[in-house]
Design a binder for these strands. Structure first.
Ligand SMILES: [Mn+2]
Ligand SMILES: [Mn+2]
Ligand SMILES: [Zn+2]
Ligand SMILES: [Zn+2]
Lengths: 148, 148
DNA sequence: GACTGTATTCGCATCTGATGCAGATCTACA
DNA sequence: TGTAGATCTGCATCAGATGCGAATACAGTC
């Protein structure tokens, strides 16, 4: 027998495929809770790792602390806005032409490309309107140490 | 005044530049402890984040849990062996020719490329000899759940 | 060389994301 | 409808990392 059909799995599967924001487990938990009060965060983690292990889902760590989940299992790459944290899919041309020099003696199984920068919304929006916290703003925070 | 010259900073700076393994903070702490017993893990973290904020160091998160530090601040990319966890530098040709379609309305600041696969050592070595734990073996672990 | 201001170190508490565990619950099938 | 076993959930626990404040050490001044 494969997997059982449970309301929790149905909901999470649906939520995942209705979004393109590469949500974190916690974000999905918030979403799911609004439609199924009482659902456990533990179940969200469980389901996500199960789906990922089955290949129904990809998971990425863009260095912002929390793993992000991606229902798009096609070969594709990502744009990460370092201001608002949003992630967008991109099918970068030329990406699959990248080759690793033979002298490295390394067999490539997959290639991940992340373009970091600023999205259009953030470039236009006044700073005050920016809702989410930047990943890379930690640079500034830590830099404020050690001033004499 | 800039930064003070302390034995801890000297040691860590030296250790970083003597290695090409992209060590974690904890790995550096182990190394440092053998040469300077009593050095604090807190100081290792502090120094690493300070150096990174100054641009003397790069830090990456390859999704294995711990941040990896890189004294090589040139523009370069990485090979990640999903069997042993080793990370190697690579100067992928064609990488800087990658372009993001204008319609994405996204200003790219930097591009990170990670080639995942298997290194030569792992491909040749008997499985028993593999010392470190694979990052991606979690796939197998989680898959062992839900068998009826 | 001794003095002093302040940067740094260090231990400990704390935080976040994530996983281990086991009893309660529910699904799938006979 | 009954049952075996998969799933859900709450809670404990873990790992990596950071906040904080007292103790310490560096780098100039006299
Ligand atoms: Mn994606
Ligand atoms: Mn490197
Ligand atoms: Zn943005
Ligand atoms: Zn290897």
């Amino acid at each position: 027998m494969g997997l059982k059909v449970t309301p929790q799995r149905q909901l999470l599967f649906r939520l995942l495929h209705d979004t393109s924001t590469h949500p974190t487990a916690d974000a999905l938990f918030e979403l799911a809770s609004s439609q199924m009060p009482g659902i456990s965060l533990r179940t969200v983690y469980q389901t996500l790792t199960d789906l990922a292990a089955m290949g129904e889902l990809q998971s990425f760590d863009f260095g912002s602390g929390a793993t992000r989940f991606d229902p798009n299992v096609d070969a594709h790459h990502h744009l990460l806005c370092t201001t608002c944290g949003d992630v967008a899919d991109i099918y970068a041309e030329g990406a699959d032409r990248l080759r690793v020099d033979d002298q490295h003696d390394f067999v490539v199984a997959s290639t991940d490309i992340v373009f970091r920068g600023e999205c259009g919304a953030c470039r236009n929006a006044p700073a005050a309107d920016r809702s989410r916290i930047s990943t890379s703003s930690s640079t500034i925070e830590t830099a404020t140490r050690s001033q004499s």
